[in-house]
């Protein structure tokens, strides 16, 4: 299968990419790792007349630790985040990066591309929502920083303007006594998750001071399970409160029945994933090292 013919524009810098976008108009598309866009173009679901290629921009892929937190360049591929010692300090990032699709796709697909695509089943948005990450964007008028909660607008719709691109994701290191976990269930490695859960617990003297629970692939956007969070906040994290949170998360999920399973099946998944995620997050908050990964047959 071939994509429809298009004009190819190779950007030499992020700034040049923004300029190209504004000159070429709204029909132009950005090409990062291409792991979503190229299949869409081959299937002729997308046929942009212009592609602005970001792959040859030097210095746009990195994971850096500085005083402001962790900085991840938009063009950083999932595999590089998986292998990054700086990212490993925030285990939920490794949970996510190491489980996205398969080795080959992680070698090409980028964090910026994934966020800009805003696929309801994407892995990064739920994870970054629990971390209150910021997305740095660049357009012809300059830079702006958008909180991730404002960045994801709707299914396949981000807050990016037509002539804007993501340049960096900023992640504040969570406090020491907190723990996070991301767990996704999928039918096989290369496919999107049937359901996923990202959780974060901030603990203090055995009591949960703050909690974030965000569900993926069970709504048009990631679903923040506020009642599930409330079930834990200012409580001890016990089997009983985790159960209550998982039940509240199940109620918050709004899944569509599709080839990945019925709505009821996906709700069941949510209950199990939230419970498992909370167990791991709690252990991590206590300083234990726990390995966690996407589940697939």
């Amino acid at each position: 299968m071939f994509p429809r013919a298009f004009h190819y524009h190779r950007a030499g810098s992020l700034k040049e990419a923004a300029t190209m976008l504004s000159q070429l108009g709204p029909e132009a598309k950005l090409l990062a790792g291409g792991q979503s866009l190229i299949p869409l173009m081959k299937l002729r679901f997308a046929g942009p007349p212009h592609l602005v290629d970001l792959n040859f921009i030097p210095g746009a892929a990195y994971v850096k630790q500085d005083a402001g937190g962790l900085r991840v360049g938009a063009l950083t591929c999932h595999a590089d985040i998986e292998d990054s010692p700086a990212a490993a300090a925030i285990p939920i990032l490794h949970d996510c990066a190491a489980g996205i699709a398969d080795v080959q796709i992680r070698n090409r697909g980028t964090i910026g591309g994934s966020l800009a695509e805003a696929d309801p089943s994407g892995d990064w948005a739920p994870v970054l929502l629990t971390l209150n990450a910021d997305v740095r964007c660049l357009g012809p008028k300059g830079e702006r920083t958008v909180p991730i909660s404002k960045f994801v607008v709707d299914a396949y719709t981000s807050a990016l303007g037509e002539d804007e691109l993501i340049i960096e994701v900023l992640i504040q290191a969570p406090p020491k006594s907190s723990g996070g976990a991301y767990i996704a269930f999928k039918r096989s490695a290369p496919v999107y998750a049937s359901a996923s859960a990202a959780v974060r617990l901030a603990m203090e003297d055995g009591v949960c001071r703050d909690a974030a629970i965000v569900l993926g692939a069970v709504g048009l956007t990631p679903v923040r399970a506020l009642e599930a969070e409330a079930a834990l906040r200012n409580n001890q994290v016990t089997a009983k409160t985790m159960e209550a949170a998982a039940e509240a998360a199940r109620a918050a999920a709004d899944p569509q029945p599709d080839m990945r399973g019925s709505a009821e099946y996906k709700r069941q998944l949510v209950t199990a994933l939230v419970k498992r995620g909370l167990e791991v997050a709690l252990k991590r908050a206590r300083g234990e090292k726990v390995e966690l990964s996407h589940i697939y047959a």
């Binding site: 291409g34 792991q35 190229i38 081959k42 299937l43 796709i105 070698n107 090409r108 290369p190």
Partner: peptide
Amino acid sequence: TSYCGACTVLLNGKAVKSCTVLAVH
């Protein structure tokens, strides 16, 4: 469609699915 991996090659030392990478890359 970038699922099966039969087209896997190394590009700059990394395994990729060559059906989902442009030649210009």
